[in-house]
């Protein structure tokens, strides 16, 4: 497709690892936000005749994922007095290595997928799978609720990438729907984070186990 596709995707992939390896929550937020912006730009490159509606939608995506949600999270970080450390369950080094293994597997797996010929050699599919995998890692191996939100964001980024492949078949409208869900999700999580921090004076999800009784 476009000559800039692969380099941009590589940067997006590298941002996955930054998100896994950085120890400050602000760093993770920035990485995820940058990735969101990058993917928005990517969408512009993938299709030459995108139309004014498309540009508006892409602009909205960039705006939401790159600025609104991160701003919102930073705000939550400040309001709920969250510590800046990520507090991983699996340490940074092993998270990165797990991420690398997942990315490698994504590369191998995507070469076996029955893709359309135009999509065969592209990094798009592996990058999408790898980003989804990173999102899962983030969801499962980080303690704080705010990191879960970031995990969801990464997950959404991965799905967005996959959606780029099917741009003709899947209108951007669907993407808008996903985005809306996400935004609501983040909103709800924001409220939950607020409540957790009020109830337990910390936002570690470990405390939620206390609710099982």
């Amino acid at each position: 497709m476009a000559p800039f596709l692969d380099p941009l995707l590589i940067v997006a992939l590298a941002l996955n690892f930054v998100a896994l390896g950085v120890s400050r929550i602000r760093g993770v937020i920035n990485a995820v936000a940058l990735q969101g912006i990058l993917l928005g730009i990517l969408a512009l490159f993938v299709h030459s005749e995108i139309g004014i509606r498309g540009i508006l939608l892409v602009g909205g995506t960039i705006c939401l994922k790159g600025f609104v949600i991160p701003r919102f999270l930073v705000h939550a970080l400040r309001e709920a007095n969250i510590q800046h450390e990520v507090t991983p369950v699996v340490n940074y080094m092993n998270s990165i290595l797990l991420g690398a293994v997942g990315t490698g597997l994504a590369m191998v797996f995507s070469s076996t997928l029955p893709l359309a010929d135009t999509h065969k050699g592209l990094l798009l599919v592996p990058a999408s799978l790898a980003t989804v995998w990173t999102g899962f890692l983030m969801l499962t191996t980080r303690k704080k609720a705010i990191m879960q939100v970031l995990g969801y964001l990464l997950l959404e980024n991965g799905i967005f990438l996959f959606g780029l492949l099917l741009l003709e078949a899947m209108p951007l409208l669907v993407e808008v729907g996903v985005l809306l869900d996400l935004f609501t999700g983040v909103f709800v999580m924001g409220i939950i984070i607020h409540h957790i921090s009020r109830e337990f004076a910390s936002i570690s999800t470990e405390h939620l186990t206390e609710l099982k009784e």
Partner: peptide, 23 residues
């Protein structure tokens, strides 16, 4: 303690470089 993380990241960068070539 964070130094190894950066170095592993350097390894991964190169590893992806070669994987991009041979895949």
């Amino acid at each position: 303690t964070r130094v190894p993380v950066l170095l592993v990241a350097a390894c991964l960068l190169s590893a992806f470089a070669i994987i991009l070539l041979v895949r």
